[in-house]
Amino acid sequence: MSTDRIDKILAHEGFGTRKDVRKYFRASKVLVNGQVITDPGFHCDIDKDEISVEGEILNIEKNIYLMMNKPQNTVCANKDGLHQTVFDLLEEQYRIGFALENLHLIGRLDIDTEGLLIFTTDGKLTHRLISPKTNCPKKYFVRLENSIDENLKNEYEKKLAAGIRIPAEDNEDEADCLPAKIEFTSSDDEVYLTIVEGKYHQVKRMFRALGNKVIFLKRVSINELKLDENLSAGSYRKMSPEEVALLG
């Protein structure tokens, strides 16, 4: 049986820090299976025990999973002195207590890149998805500066499928990329690209190696999980267990 301190559980549920939740114990407002608990260090099992605070039974989730449609001009960081961060867009309940200490991103997006961003407290899932051994596919919608004709389409497809070498950028050296899949659209300057790595500015550098330039970039899926098209830029929502499973 896996148990945890009840003050930690309440902090996890957004009641404040462990120090903040002591008032509920002092006021005898915390019950476990119908019995008043006054000891913040009391251990209980969230899978089996019924916990209530001020008469309200808690529906406790072990981990937090959020999907966001990241907007442009927003950085993937907890704090930034110059720009708005993706964490600034979250409600207070996700910026206090357990969430403040444990909520993190699965992969990042550049400041000018939009699209699918996952927040979670599930460290095991994060490790599994970002591990180089996993080769987790990430799909991007790409708008290019220069249009591509049929000859270039064939060239792009072959070079990307073979694994292209990308140029150095900032402090990053040249690098060889694993094979990538390009999909063409009805527009001659818009494509989808699926990669299985997360190198610095990788998609932009890949098209630069092909002699083109990315002018708009949006991540649309991670593994089998697709971005909810109903999410406007900057908005987010909880993910369902079925969606979490699609991440792999």
Results as ranks from 00 to 15, higher is better:
D122E: 07
D122R: 08
G123I: 05
K124F: 01
L125T: 04
L125K: 02
T126S: 12
T126I: 02
H127L: 06
H127K: 13
H127C: 01
R128M: 06
R128T: 05
L129W: 02
L129T: 06
L129H: 02
L129I: 14
I130Q: 15
S131V: 08
S131F: 04
S131H: 15
P132H: 07
P132Q: 09
P132A: 05
P132G: 06
K133V: 02
K133C: 00
K133R: 15
T134D: 00
N135S: 09
N135P: 01
C136F: 02
C136L: 11
C136I: 14
C136R: 11
C136S: 12
P137E: 03
P137H: 00
P137S: 02
K138C: 10
K138T: 08
K138P: 05
K138S: 08
K139E: 13
K139P: 05
K139L: 08
K139V: 08
K139H: 02
Y140I: 06
Y140N: 05
Y140V: 07
Y140F: 11
F141L: 15
F141T: 08
F141M: 10
F141R: 12
V142L: 05
R143A: 13
R143H: 08
L144R: 08
L144F: 09
E145Y: 09
E145R: 13
N146C: 00
N146S: 06
S147M: 06
I148H: 09
I148D: 03
D149M: 02
E150A: 14
N151T: 10
N151I: 04
N151R: 07
K153M: 04
K153V: 00
K153W: 01
N154R: 12
N154D: 08
N154M: 06
E155P: 02
E155R: 11
Y156F: 13
Y156S: 01
E157K: 15
E157M: 04
K158H: 09
K158I: 02
K158N: 10
K158T: 10
K158V: 04
K158E: 14
K159M: 13
K159T: 04
K159N: 13
K159S: 09
L160W: 14
L160N: 11
L160Q: 11
A161W: 08
A162D: 14
A162S: 15
G163N: 08
G163K: 06
G163W: 14
G163Y: 12
G163A: 11
G163H: 10
G163Q: 11
I164A: 08
I164C: 05
R165P: 03
R165C: 04
I166Y: 10
I166Q: 00
P167N: 08
P167A: 06
P167C: 02
P167E: 05
A168V: 07
A168N: 10
E169H: 14
E169F: 15
E169Q: 09
E169D: 14
E169G: 00
D170F: 07
D170R: 12
D170T: 07
D170E: 15
N171C: 03
N171V: 10
E172R: 06
E172A: 14
E172W: 15
E172I: 11
E172S: 10
D173N: 12
D173C: 05
E174L: 08
E174D: 12
E174Q: 14
